[in-house]
Design a protein around this nucleic acid. Structure first.
Lengths: 178, 178
DNA sequence: CAATATATGGACCAAATGGTCTTTAATATC
DNA sequence: GATATTAAAGACCATTTGGTCCATATATTG
């Protein structure tokens, strides 16, 4: 997974994969079929990890807004320093392959949709608890947050500035939370 | 430029380039040195176009906030339908090459910084005209907008839904404009 | 028209690509 | 301990990659 994450699909060669997996050519093809199959496995694992983390952050807790804040704080971390420069497998793959590879496209579309849904849920709970500013729609804000964090990953690729990421999140939250 | 835009750097082969430019191998290498040089030219042109458009949108006009709104409306267009699926050369390149290619990294970092600066200027003018909600900092909102629109391009790759993009922009503007 | 400079087309190249296959080693089963 | 089964190693393959080079048109200039 790591080598695809760092180098992208086309940027990763078979020798790279062999070194990363400590497998021989024969074993790798026996286990995963081909490069594309292995990539899909790596992408699935990355997505599973991301959703599991999202659930643990947004999951039922006493304070829904705190969950959203925790989630955003995580993105501040992931868009700062070396983590920021490394970027995100999903974003990189969306830009590199989504338009040409339907299997990849479906996975990423579903991932974003799931994320949006979870965020909507958390925001709705926050709203029910009176934690949101008047007149905000959870669904719209969820999509807004999704776009924002993915954009932070893009900008963080060349400017992984922690203070800037924190300021962005604070600026946003200050306007939407009561 | 178009073929790099659609297929990325590694995804574009020499034959692709020859067909797109209607040039022979010899002529192409005489004109641009190599594939990397040609790519840099394409990237520069894309960035120049983007900044020119940004200037024409945000440039001195009677109403600074209208300029920002126009700019965002453009991103709604560019993240919807076929344009959305095509995506953005800068975002794709940032994810694919920025970490490994310093020339690319510098160009993209400068592009984002310039965009952020222009947005900050427009927002400062809007603030001076009393068009912004109380307590918002132009610089922070500029960075926020930058991340937001680049994120819209990412999400628009797999879900180029115009209504969703419009809702995101409206949700944001409603909270930051007076 | 002749001579020269320029640009074009594509043959050609070495290296790297993703993928297969056979040989060899290791492991498990009897 | 002999045999059967699995997995590892890497030789090997066709294709494609980015890049060079030369022979031939095509202008350009005298």
């Amino acid at each position: 997974m790591g080598v695809f994450w760092s180098c992208g699909y086309h940027g990763t060669s078979l020798p790279d994969l062999l070194e990363a997996t400590n497998l021989s050519r024969g074993s790798l093809y026996a286990a995963f079929g081909d490069k594309h199959g292995l990539f899909l496995r790596a992408l699935d694992r990355y997505i599973d990890d991301a959703l599991a983390r999202l659930d643990s952050e947004l999951g039922p807790r006493d304070n829904a807004l705190t969950g959203v804040r925790t989630c955003l704080a995580g993105y501040v971390d992931r868009t700062s320093g070396v983590a920021g420069k490394r970027g995100c497998l999903v974003v990189a793959t969306a830009m590199e392959l989504a338009a040409h590879d339907i299997e990849v496209e479906q996975r990423i579309r579903r991932f974003f949709k799931t994320m949006e849904t979870r965020l909507t849920g958390a925001l709705a709970r926050a709203q029910a608890a009176g934690q949101l500013a008047d007149g905000v729609e959870p669904a719209s804000v969820a999509r807004l947050l999704l776009c924002l964090v993915e954009g932070m990953r893009v900008v963080g690729k060349t400017d992984p500035d922690r203070a800037a990421s924190q300021a962005v999140v604070k600026t946003l939250i200050d306007r939407f939370a009561k």
